[in-house]
Design a protein around this nucleic acid. Structure first.
Lengths: 194, 194
DNA sequence: GTGTCTCCATACCGCTGCGTATGGTCGGCT
DNA sequence: AGCCGACCATACGCAGCGGTATGGAGACAC
């Protein structure tokens, strides 16, 4: 009779299922883009029917917005984690960030990013999310350059170059040309950070 | 009775109509991606019906491949034109190339490029086209760096940095942050070319 | 047992889109 | 005039998807 959570199991289960839907949706987005995110095929992949989907989500748009929110939160959390540095470790953090984000191994994450950015060209909600992520990433790297003692203008320019390079590199089918040559990579990293 | 082109009007008209279909398809791709390229909606936009489409194309896949070929030819022609330089003008040509390709004004072209690259992640034909375009762009800019007297390794590294930067920059919603500051832009261009 | 709430299945409607079959129109050729 | 080929309209079958309505199984309370 206490005002303890009378429906906690229900609420917890509901939230967890919703997260499961979003996680599965991200896999679809990585493979087929947001246009390929279909309610029925997603339900089929999860072993349920549409009836379940429309219990957890209002409609398809509701799922897309939830995916966008989840993606934004994850990207902001990740860039803050990767660019964390104790005083004196800023340069190493910058190099580490370039390594991580320019890694061709993260194929799924890159696909998701490309899909969302393409979608954002036509959707205002998506555009806002992408802009928030871009702003946070630029701010995090700019903060590192500032900590290295660079003037504000140069810190902004270097962070812009770093971000554009990393992003552009990841968007290419980056295996063909001799980019794996450590020499080339080191030259570019030095060109950006030093 | 001469063996002159007996069906030239027919052939010319057929080729022109096919080109018109492809041109219209590129507009759709820029707006809705390749997934949004639908036969019936495209026909409706051109003021005809599906009956016309299936006369000029075998099926939807045939149109997509034609669009890919058209895009590849246009991109290769364009990069060769932009990077053309008489001896002594290589540096100016590099700067011009960066200006042109990092221009936010070419919104339609950027959308098409993003759409095709996303599509190429799932389609082998698209992947081959994107790789050809990438290889040609890298080769053209590398040639300019080589003409400036740089060693081969550095020319390759600079061309990779240039391409990745330009491409990454164009993919962002590039208006928000202070990138229009000519100071920032000049710093980056100098960092790449000098 | 009865009720209630959560979660999902089933059935249905409407729409869109692909591909085909078929017929019709128009211009050029003889 | 008559034929033929290029080009397009019309109509059809089929499948997939969004969204709704409704029912049903299970847990839990009383």
């Amino acid at each position: 009779m206490d005002n303890k959570p009378p429906r906690k199991p229900a609420a917890a289960r509901e939230a967890l299922d919703r997260a499961a839907w979003i996680a599965a949706a991200l896999n679809i987005v990585a493979r087929d883009g947001i246009d390929g995110l279909r309610v029925e095929s997603l339900a089929k992949q999860l072993g349920v029917t549409k009836g379940s989907f429309y219990w957890h989500f209002k409609d398809r748009r509701d799922l897309i917005d939830a995916v966008l929110d989840d993606w934004r939160a994850g990207r902001i959390r990740d860039i803050r984690k990767q660019t964390a540095a104790e005083p004196g470790g800023e340069l190493a953090a910058l190099r580490h960030t370039i390594d991580v984000y320019a890694a061709a191994k993260n194929r799924k994450g890159i696909s998701i990013e490309a899909a969302i950015r393409l979608w954002a060209r036509q959707d205002s909600n998506g555009l806002a999310v992408v802009e928030e992520v871009d702003a946070e990433r630029l701010a995090c790297t700019r903060r590192l350059f500032l900590a290295l003692g660079l003037p504000a203008a140069e810190a902004a320019a270097r962070s812009a170059l770093l971000y554009a390079y990393v992003f552009g590199f990841s968007m290419m089918q980056c295996g063909r040309f001799d980019m794996d040559a450590a020499q080339t990579k080191d030259w570019i990293v030095g060109r950006i950070t030093q």
